[in-house]
Design a protein around this nucleic acid. Structure first.
Lengths: 279, 279
DNA sequence: CGACTCATTGACGTTCCTCAACCTTAGTGG
DNA sequence: CCACTAAGGTTGAGGAACGTCAATGAGTCG
C-alpha cells in the first residue's frame, strides 16, 4: 500500500506544500515555534525517559526552511547549530570556479553546522530539498548546555559520532569504481538511513534530482538514468521518477560489491597469522 | 634545506626504525610511557596556556604500534579512544566478501575510535603505516573527564568537528570524475593536512603505497603511476618513489578542477574578462 | 641467492563521459 | 483551451579515459 511511503516527517507529495510555509516572502517567524530540552534530546535519539534528569528550562526555536532556500551559507560566520526536525537538505560546497559539489544529504535527526566548532565559518552550505524544519541552537550556549545537561550531551555526542561513521560510509560508496556499484551502494546506504529513522527501507522517495545524485557520486547524470534502467530491467528495482521500490536487496548488495571485475585479493592476511600463531 | 622534511613526529626514513619498537614479538609495554592531561590537551591543539586551569592528576598510557600492526580491529568491542601522537595509520573497512577499502589516513593529532561512542563496536580497523605511538583514553572515563576538564573537552570537540569537515573534504576528493583530478585533489589535501601539522606543504613523504592510494581514491594502482608520471612530465611534481615535491601548486589546483573534458584547457580565463569589463 | 613486495610501462578492451535530441511535467500568459 | 518556456528525465552515438592483463626491474627480507 501507499501508506508505507507516508511518514510523519514527510509531506505527502513534493508538490503539496503546507500553507504555513513561507515561500517567496522571507517574512521571518511571526509565530516562533519552540521546543524544550526534553524534546530536543528525544529528537537526537536520547532515551525518552531521560526527561526527569534534565532541567527543562531552556527552549529552542524551530526554524522553517522553504524548499530551495539556504539554511546556512558556505563561508558564513558560524553562530548556530541546527538539528533537522523534518524534511531534508543537501550539503553543497562551491569551488572558487563556481563548480558545486554535493557532499551529502541531511535528514531528520542529522546535525548541520557542527563544523562551525572547529573553524570560524561554515564549511559548506545546506539547501532544503523540501519544506523543512530545524531546531536552532546557538553555538555560544552549547558548552554551557552540555555541562548542565549530561543526557543531552550524550545524545549529541552519539549523533556526531554516528555522523563521523556515516562519513566513512560515504567514502566507501564513492570508492566503488563501477558506476552501477556506486549507485547500488548509494541506494543501500539510503535505505539503511531511512530504516534507521523508522521509515520503510524498501520504499524510498528520492528528495533530490538525478543531477544531485550524479554530482554526489561523481558520475554523469545520464549514467544514473542508465544504471537505474539496468536495475529495473534486471528486476531489482521499480522506479517511477522520484519514487523507488527495492525489489531485490540481495541482488543490489551483490552489485555493490563489483569493483569492476574480479575483486582484489587481500595480501594483508599473510601478515596477521604471525601474531595469531604466537599465542 | 632537508630540514623542512624533518619534524619531531617523523622518523628520518621509513627504513630506519628506532630500536625500542617491538616488531615481531608482541611483548606488551614493559616500560609503559605515560603523559598527563596537560600534554594531551596540547597534543589535541588546545591552548598550551590552558595547563593552569586543569587538574593535572590523570595520566594516560602511550601505546607503541609497530609498522603493519593493527591498532583497532573492525567490529571489535570499542573500549578505547586513541589520539595519534606520532606516525601514521590507514583506516580500513572490510566488506563481508573480503574486499578491503581504505577509508582514509590518520596522522598526528587525529582521533581514532571515536565512532565507538555511537555504537558498540569499531566501524573500521586502523593499521600503522610506520612505527607509531598513540595516547589511549578509556571510553568509559571520557564523560567524566570531559566534565572535569572543560579545556580538554573543548580541544576534543574541535578535533572531532575538524574531522567531520575533513570527511567532507574526502568526499570532495572522491567526487572528481577524472583520475588526474582525483589524484591532484588528494595531493592538495595531503599537502594542506601536513601544513596544518606544521610540516612542509611542498615536500611530502607518502607513508602509504600506491595500492593504498589507489584503493582510497577508487582507481587502479597503475593509474596512480601513470597520473604521477603525467604530472612529473608536466613539471608539476618531482617524484622519487615515496618522496614527493610539489613544484607547481597552481597547476595542480587547476588540474583538480577538471571534470573530465579536455585534459587541460582552462575555460577560467575566458570567463573572467566578462567580469573585468563589467566594471 | 630466491621469494617477495612495490613501482613502472605497454597493449588491449570496455566503460562511461560528452554531446545531442527528444519527451514529460509544471508554471505562465494569452 | 492552447502556445510557450523551463526544468527534469530518458535515450542514442561516438570516442576518450581508464581498468585489466601482462611483463619487467628495483629494493628488501630471510
Amino acid at each position: 500500500m501507499a501508506t508505507t511511503l507516508m511518514t510523519s516527517t514527510a509531506p505527502p507529495l513534493l508538490t503539496a506544500h503546507a500553507s504555513w510555509f513561507v515561500r517567496s516572502s522571507p517574512q521571518p517567524q511571526a509565530d516562533a515555534v519552540q521546543i524544550d530540552l526534553r524534546s530536543l534530546t528525544e529528537l537526537l535519539g536520547g532515551a525518552p525517559g531521560s526527561a526527569a534528569g534534565e532541567t527543562g528550562g531552556e527552549r529552542f526555536s524551530v526554524r522553517r526552511v522553504a524548499r530551495g532556500a539556504t539554511l546556512v551559507h558556505e563561508g558564513a560566520r558560524a553562530s548556530m547549530l541546527y538539528v533537522v526536525q523534518a524534511g531534508s537538505f543537501k550539503c553543497v560546497q562551491t569551488a572558487e570556479d563556481g563548480y558545486e559539489h554535493v557532499l551529502g544529504f541531511a535528514w531528520r535527526r542529522d546535525v548541520i553546522g557542527y563544523d562551525g566548532l572547529s573553524g570560524e565559518n561554515y564549511a559548506f552550505a545546506a539547501v532544503a530539498l523540501e519544506d523543512s524544519t530545524v531546531v536552532a541552537l546557538p553555538l555560544a550556549s552549547l558548552a554551557v548546555l552540555r555541562q548542565r545537561a549530561p543526557l543531552f550531551d550524550a545524545a549529541l555526542q552519539a549523533i556526531v559520532a554516528r555522523q563521523l561513521t556515516h562519513a566513512g560510509e560515504i567514502a566507501r560508496v564513492m570508492s566503488a569504481v563501477a558506476a552501477n556499484a556506486r549507485l547500488a551502494r548509494f541506494l543501500i546506504q539510503l535505505s539503511a538511513s531511512m530504516a534507521e529513522r523508522g521509515q520503510s527501507s524498501r520504499h524510498l522517495l528520492l528528495r533530490m534530482n538525478r543531477r544531485d545524485i550524479a554530482n554526489h557520486l561523481g558520475l554523469a547524470h545520464e549514467t544514473i538514468s542508465r544504471s537505474l534502467r539496468m536495475m529495473t530491467d534486471a528486476g531489482w528495482l521499480r522506479v517511477d521518477i522520484r519514487e523507488l521500490e527495492i525489489l531485490d536487496p540481495a541482488a543490489l548488495r551483490r552489485c555493490a560489491r563489483n569493483t569492476r571485475g574480479p575483486a582484489e585479493a587481500t595480501p594483508l592476511a599473510s601478515r596477521q597469522p604471525v601474531l595469531a600463531f604466537a599465542a
